[in-house]
Structure formats: structure tokens, C-alpha cells
């Protein structure tokens, strides 16, 4: 039987219950949120389970939502079940004061550099990563450039502030 989004959701809810929240489907892609403490368990379950078989990590990245207090940083995993050809997106939120999340490098070798990139740009602390160092930026950089904390280089430019991009107000 082909795996469907509903089946995945059912299976995961049976296993983890209330821990998984914010189920949604956008453009046919099933998405849910999991707590940061046990993301590695969920990942193991998704990988090992004989029905789910999410054994390909397509993408891993981070997003910064400055106005979501207590869960400013978000790590997004995009998994792919190549046998049933179905994708799954899974998010983990964490506070910016303590951006800790378990590294998934023990399951996916591809997560190594992707996690380093997420650390480099957002400062996400991946616990258990073999070499969590900067990858794109210089080693002695002391800030995380992709966080939404930095105004344009030239603050006098009125044509580039947030108002011009449909958001109102400026940094």
C-alpha cells in the first residue's frame, strides 16, 4: 500500500501522541513540529520504521523568527522516502537564548555540513556534532549573520527599508 500523508500522520500520532503539533499540508507536503529535546528519537523512528522509511535527508536549514518569543529559532528537516516517493517536512523550535538541538549526523552523514551551515548562519547548537565549526564564514566571526538582527549597511537608504517590502516599519 502506498504511503500517504494521512497514514504518516496516523502512525506518528500513535507513536508520539501529543508531542507532535502543528500538523499541516502545504502544496501537498506534510509538515509537523516536534519538541527539540527528542528530535533524534523521532528521526530514528522515521528512519527505522518499516512503513515510514524516511531514509534520505534532502535538506536541513534554519529560520529565525524574532517575534516568536521563546521559540525564535527553527530548524527545518526535509526528509524523503525514496521507495514510496513521498516527502515530509519536520520542524523544531528552540529559544534563541539556548538554541540546543540534537545533531542527526549519527543517522545521516549528509547532515554534517548542513548542520555546520545552520550553526554558521543562525548559531544553532547541534549537540553531538563531530565538528561544529563555521563553514562558509571566517572562523573568527563573532555573530550569526542570517539572524534577522541586522539592518541594511546604509541606514540612510529609504528605498530599501521594510516598508518598501510590504512589511511596514523598519528594523
Amino acid at each position: 500500500m502506498a504511503l500517504s500523508n494521512e497514514l504518516i500522520q496516523e502512525q506518528l500520532t500513535n507513536k508520539f501522541g501529543e508531542q507532535l503539533t502543528n500538523w499541516e499540508q502545504q502544496f501537498g507536503l506534510l509538515t509537523f513540529t516536534a519538541p527539540a529535546e527528542n528530535n533524534i528519537e523521532i528521526m530514528h523512528y522515521l528512519y527505522d520504521n518499516e512503513t515510514l522509511r524516511f531514509r534520505f535527508l534532502t535538506d536541513l536549514t534554519a529560520v529565525h523568527y524574532p517575534e516568536k518569543t521563546g521559540e525564535e529559532l527553527c530548524v527545518v528537516y526535509l526528509l524523503h522516502n525514496l521507495i514510496d516517493n513521498i516527502r515530509l517536512r519536520y520542524k523544531v523550535y528552540m529559544p534563541i537564548s539556548q538554541p540546543d538541538v540534537q545533531s542527526v549526523t549519527s543517522i545521516f552523514s549528509s547532515a554534517n555540513w548542513l548542520e555546520r551551515e545552520a550553526y554558521d548562519f543562525f548559531g544553532v547548537n547541534f549537540i553531538g556534532h563531530p565538528n561544529l565549526s563555521r563553514i562558509m564564514n571566517v572562523d573568527d566571526m563573532d555573530y550569526f549573520p542570517m539572524r534577522k538582527e541586522y539592518p541594511m549597511e546604509d541606514p540612510t537608504r529609504r528605498d530599501k527599508d521594510d516598508e518598501m517590502f510590504g512589511r511596514g516599519g523598519s528594523f
Binding site: T58, D59, H64, L78, S109, S110, W113, D162, G166, R167
Partner: peptide, 21 residues
């Protein structure tokens, strides 16, 4: 987020991922 620019845009670059190997 409904603005005129992406709130976040991430490129999944195949090279970056497989060059690790």
C-alpha cells in the same frame, strides 16, 4: 510572509551536500 521579498529562501545545493563525501 506575504511581503514583497522572501522571508527566508534556502537553496538546496546538490554540490554542497555531496562534496562532504
Amino acid at each position: 510572509d506575504g511581503g514583497r521579498t522572501p522571508y527566508r529562501l534556502h537553496f538546496r545545493r546538490p554540490c554542497f551536500i555531496y562534496y562532504q563525501a
